[in-house]
Structures are given as C-alpha cells and as structure tokens.
Nucleic acid binder design. Structure first.
Length: 112
DNA sequence: AGCGTGACGAGTA
DNA sequence: ATACTCGCCACGC
C-alpha cells in the first residue's frame, strides 16, 4: 500500500472549513438569508467562492436556500425550489418571479 | 505545473 | 436586466 498520509477528506470527514460553513448555514433562522460573501466575512476565512463550493458539495444537508448571492438572487438552477421555501418561511421578497430576488434589506441576517 | 471552471462580488458599459 | 472584466480561492484534468 502506498504510504498515503492520513487523508481526513477521504470517506467520512469533510474539511474543517466546510464544517464551519455548514454550521453557520444551519444557524440561519427561517425567513432570513445570508450571502456567500457574508458567510465568508463572518468566518473571516476563505472567500465567497469557497462558501459556494461547500454549499455546492454539501448543501444537500443544510438549508441551502437561505444562502444566496449578494444581490438577493438564489443559486442558479434552484431558484424555483428556493422560491417554494421562501413562501413557506415568509422570507421577504422583492420579486416573486424570475429573477427571484430576496429583500436583502430585511432578510439579511448576521450572527446576531 | 499550467489552464479552465465555478451554487461569488463588485464595477462598468 | 444583460454582458463583460477583474480579483478571489480551490479543484480537476
């Protein structure tokens, strides 16, 4: 066998960074949202692109619809599913039709 | 090791 | 609203 060093990514463990990102998403209350950049800034680590990658890979385990672009638009390809959740959670919207836009002015949430 | 790509953000036309 | 550019960071080929 190759002397493969301990591979924390293989099998079970997800990156520590991904774990922190998912933790933040999990604590976003219903009816609120955070942008990719907001989460990156909140963690003070990586960047908006890193957060997007984590959600793209592990988003299936968290409320991914509460994480949207800085301009209030949900993830591409999932705007329809996201809209269903926004209606169910009472998320303040500025546009209920494409392009679906969340009212960041009211819905934007911080670790508060 | 270089290059393309992406669930990003902000700026400009 | 759309298209394009630049900066950013990590991954896959």
């Amino acid at each position: 066998m190759s002397e493969e060093a301990a591979d924390p990514e293989s099998g079970r463990a997800i990156g520590e960074y991904a774990d922190r990102v998912l933790d933040v998403v999990e604590r976003i209350p219903a009816g609120r949202v955070m942008s990719y950049g907001d989460i990156a800034e909140y963690l003070a680590e990586g960047g908006p692109r890193q957060v997007g990658r984590v959600l793209a890979i592990y988003g299936g385990s968290v409320a991914w619809w509460r994480v949207i672009h800085a301009d209030g638009t949900p993830a591409p390809g999932h705007d329809r599913a996201a809209l269903e959740h926004y209606n169910a959670e009472g998320t303040p919207l500025r546009s209920a039709r494409s392009p679906v836009r969340v009212d960041m002015r009211k819905a934007r949430w911080g670790g508060d």
